[in-house]
Nucleic acid binder design. Structure first.
Ligand SMILES: [Mn+2]
Ligand SMILES: [Mn+2]
Ligand SMILES: [Zn+2]
Ligand SMILES: [Zn+2]
Lengths: 144, 144
DNA sequence: CGGACGATGCAATGCTATTGCATTGTTTCA
DNA sequence: TGAAACAATGCAATAGCATTGCATCGTCCG
């Protein structure tokens, strides 16, 4: 009997090393998407470069997807189980909160199909909405 | 009679300095969105920092909009005449070509309205599509 | 004239991402 | 088992973009 975290990695052809299990664990525990710096902070003594290469491997194997939210740092979030590197099944909208700077996947909000002039060959669509998240919406920006 | 470029700046409450006129001119001449480095290259002897602050001023005054295309560098493109810093009227899709790395505004392709769970307060929507542009679509990636 | 203000330009810094390279750990196979 | 082969790790260094600090310059009043 293998640990569930190990199974997840093995299913994606990723050798389950201690560091990778730690990174996967922290990704699973956190609802919001995490940047490289976030993971580094949450894994107190992890080397930044190793985490970077771990996230790169995860991305290449279809375990996580990259989110460019305009915050300056790329965020990472777990993919759906049926995702592969070639074919992603979690083509959803992402939300970036301008107050708490957290980025979330919105699995229930699919990216709509957009028709482009025929000359374009679309490979990928990224839809990021910015504003106040559920937690921040009720809080005024400052007490004045 | 004032020069048309000067009129454009004055209409946006921007003092028409020589540097600003040069940056506006290069933005008008180029169909694709330009990064800070692009403008710096096109304006041979311009100081990088001054161009940076010029683009920042233009953005704050509603003359240009920022495009985060995931290329690593923010791109800038002219807004429609009726845009203001508070209210943009050019909420269109942007296209990033993965081959020539050019980013274009698609003024004819509007960003669709996306319904989010009520708790979210949306301020802005960014929709970037990636693939091959009209010019690059016909060209194979390499001769093999 | 002289101060106030904005614009400019050089230097320095911050932040994120990435590469080089030596070391360590693990698997393979004779 | 033992050595080669390979993968993973960690430290150092570098690259690239963005931003800030600060002194200077120019212009516009008063
Ligand atoms: Mn997601
Ligand atoms: Mn645009
Ligand atoms: Zn928030
Ligand atoms: Zn192209």
């Amino acid at each position: 009997m293998v640990h569930p975290l190990e199974e997840t990695l093995i299913a994606r052809q990723i050798a389950p090393t201690p560091m990778r299990l730690l990174v996967l664990d922290v990704l699973q525990r956190h609802p919001a998407a995490l940047s490289l710096a976030d993971v580094e902070l949450l894994l107190e003594h992890a080397d930044r470069i190793t985490v970077h290469r771990t996230l790169k491997t995860f991305t290449e194997k279809g375990l996580v997807h990259r989110i460019e939210d305009g915050s300056g740092a790329v965020k990472f979030a777990l993919c759906e189980p049926q995702c592969t590197p070639e074919q992603h099944h979690d083509l959803h909208v992402h939300f970036f909160c301008t107050r708490c700077r957290e980025t979330s996947c919105l699995p229930t909000v699919a990216v709509p199909t957009i028709a482009l002039p025929a000359a374009y060959q679309v490979q990928e669509t990224s839809l990021v909405m910015k504003g106040l998240c559920a937690g921040c919406a009720g809080i005024p920006t400052s007490i004045s």
